[in-house]
């Protein structure tokens, strides 16, 4: 558990307000302890990877950040707004791509996006504009009227990302977004989101168990069995674990062989 000095290789840190600040969050499901005193921050322009094996508690954490259930201890703040005290303000600034696909298979791409826009109180005109922009960025513009059922896995994921960005959030949460996709699709999505991070100053929290998705200049939060074992810039974490690569660092920290 190394308190990391927030060091960013590219963008300068915008005035201290963290995009996402998790402080002392614990959570149990009955007897099972899912999270134990989790704490970390993500700043605007940072690409933070939440690295952990299956069952580490990544999805539970996401559920708490997106207020699917309440955190009973600690605090979760989105750009300063506590998710429990000011949920409306907090949620308006997050875009989420869940691990489980949450898109309506029977509706078209644009119908799905417009539904999401309406849920965020956007006017139809604003929705139409954003729709064009987001789908264009993901090269999905020509598929706007296709039923989602007919798209491939990779395309559906891209639609979900476009959807998550419709209302212009400054924090993007993605829970295992590349699961089930082939290498090319995975890389495409990863590149796209990193670009958003760089060019738009978006804060990104990318949860995954695939260590090879961690980039050299990212921030990383190592989550294992509900505990944060390390948090900071990738280089710092590697050094702190006395390892040479992130894989080694992970193995050392968790005492397990993570692949």
């Amino acid at each position: 558990m190394t308190p990391a000095a927030p060091a960013q290789a590219t963008e300068p840190v915008a005035d201290g307000v963290a995009a996402l600040a998790v402080e002392g969050v614990s959570h149990s499901f009955g007897a099972r302890r899912a999270l134990e005193n989790v704490a970390f921050t993500v700043h605007p322009g940072e690409f933070a990877v939440l690295l952990g094996l299956n069952g580490a508690g990544k999805t539970t954490l996401f559920s708490l950040v997106t207020r699917l259930y309440h955190n009973r201890s600690g605090a979760i703040r989105i750009f300063g707004s506590d998710v429990r005290k000011k949920p409306s303000r907090a949620l308006a600034q997050i875009g989420v791509v869940f691990q489980q696909p949450t898109i309506d298979l029977d509706l078209s791409v644009s119908q799905n996006l417009r539904y999401h826009a309406a849920l965020h109180g956007m006017s139809r005109r604003a929705a139409a504009e954003r729709l064009e922009v987001e789908l264009g960025r993901l090269d999905m513009a020509e598929r706007a009227d296709d039923k989602v059922r007919r798209l491939s896995g990779g395309q559906r994921r891209r639609v979900e990302i476009a959807r998550a960005l419709m209302h212009g959030p400054r924090l993007l949460l993605l829970d295992e977004p590349t699961v089930g996709l082939d290498i090319r699709a995975r890389q495409a999505i990863l590149d796209h989101v990193r670009r958003l991070c760089r060019e738009e100053g978006l804060a990104v929290l990318w949860a995954t168990h695939l260590i090879d998705e961690v980039g050299g200049h990212d921030r990383v939060v190592v989550l294992h069995e509900g505990r944060v074992l390390a948090f900071g810039g990738v280089a710092d974490v590697i050094r702190g674990a006395g390892a040479a690569t992130i894989i080694e660092a992970f193995t050392t920290l968790t005492g397990k062989d993570g692949t």
């Binding site: 207020r67 409306s88 303000r89 907090a90 997050i94 989420v96 949450t102 849920l119 965020h120």
Partner: peptide, 18 residues
């Protein structure tokens, strides 16, 4: 079960309203 409920629940509008 299919996940689309989550889309509804992460809306910033109050849950009782949704």
């Amino acid at each position: 079960e299919m996940g689309s409920m989550k889309t509804l629940l992460v809306s910033p509008l109050p849950r009782w309203y949704l």
